[in-house]
């Protein structure tokens, strides 16, 4: 091992030192474009946000500084805790529903649809809503769920209810409904992907060993699908925690999450405060993901 790897490099450096240097340089050059892109579009903005989060602000101006006022204010206000709690609540409830629906859909596609043509056709069908914009998909719920909307008038005409249901729209219900609608596909895709890689003969082997359908699910399919579930979970949780527009439209500005808090600050030109909130949100999301990765190893899926 050592011999074979040592020989060419010694030969190269003995023959021409410039050649050895340039092969070293090639590595850096090959990594450079992506490093540059990531630096400019990822690292720099985050550094900028962290820097600004320590700045100060008055009603009409912001000024560079290094002070903890923004953080002190954030951690001192119980609004922050309520809003963060609300954000985590949305993420958790949406996750549960997205997982249940996403897993079921993926399971159906992977194990019950026999031909690949149908699998692809049905999978594309799932993506059709994504051909329109997020906001349009969201807004289209409003005429359906509204006080005089389709849902209420249908229920009234069937005699199920006498009064229109108030909680259908501009409530936590409608926010979560929209989240589940928007983000379940992000759960379906990775789970479906992992399930397709499960060797079908494992299911037969389980049946051979006398496992019932339920036992096969819990002892074979779910354990083998875990990495896909985890990737989907990361998608859904980060998307929901970073969202602000869904909460604004679907709650009729009556509920708040962290995204809304940041948006408000920006509307009031309180950039340092918005930056501080963003930093805390980022840290929270990273902690949530870190916690999840402790349970499931997704490396082999990537």
């Amino acid at each position: 091992m050592t011999d074979s790897s040592a020989t060419p490099s010694t030969a190269a450096s003995a023959g021409s030192p410039r050649f050895a240097l340039s092969s070293h340089l090639t590595g850096w050059l090959m990594a450079a474009p992506l490093a540059l892109v990531l630096t400019v579009f990822l690292v720099a903005p985050i550094v900028m946000i962290v820097v600004v989060s320590f700045w100060g602000a008055t009603e009409f101006s912001i000024y560079p500084a290094f002070q903890f006022d923004n953080y002190e204010f954030l951690f001192g206000s119980d609004v922050t805790y309520r809003v963060f709690f609300n954000t985590l609540k949305y993420a958790a409830i949406t996750w549960v529903f997205a997982l249940l629906i996403g897993f079921t859909v993926a399971y159906f596609l992977a194990f019950h649809v026999r031909t690949q043509t149908w699998q692809i056709a049905l999978f594309l069908l799932c993506t059709i809503p994504f051909w329109t914009s997020n906001i349009i998909r969201m807004i289209s719920w409003i005429p359906f769920l509204g006080r005089n909307g389709l849902a209420n008038s249908t229920l009234i005409s069937w005699g199920v209810i006498d009064e229109p249901l108030e909680w259908l729209l501009f409530s936590d219900f409608s926010v979560i409904l929209a989240f589940v609608h928007l983000y379940t596909l992000f759960m379906v895709v990775p789970i479906f992907n992992t399930m397709m890689r499960i060797d079908k003969s494992l299911i037969e082997a389980a049946a051979d060993a006398g496992a019932t359908g339920w036992q096969t699910l819990t002892h074979v399919i779910i354990p083998l699908t875990k990495p896909g579930i985890m990737i989907g979970t990361i998608f859904v949780v980060t998307l929901v925690m970073g969202d602000f527009i869904t909460v604004r439209f679907m709650s009729g500005s009556q509920s708040a999450n962290v995204g809304r808090m940041i948006q408000n600050d920006i509307g009031l030109l309180q950039y340092p405060s918005a930056a501080a909130t963003a930093v805390i949100l980022l840290v929270t999301v990273l902690m949530v993901i870190g916690l999840m990765l402790r349970f499931v190893d997704i490396r082999k899926e990537l």
Binding site: D199, S201, L202, E204, A205, A206, A207, D208, A209, G210, A211, H219, V220, P223, L224
Partner: peptide, 28 residues
């Protein structure tokens, strides 16, 4: 399958990749 008195050994062995050898053998 399990009530026939037969057992199958699969072409690619179909061992459960997430279970240890002992757990695989004791699965049934």
């Amino acid at each position: 399958p399990a009530r026939r008195g037969t057992a199958m050994m699969f072409q690619n062995y179909a061992l459960f990749p997430h279970l240890s050898v002992t757990e695989n053998v004791g699965f049934s």
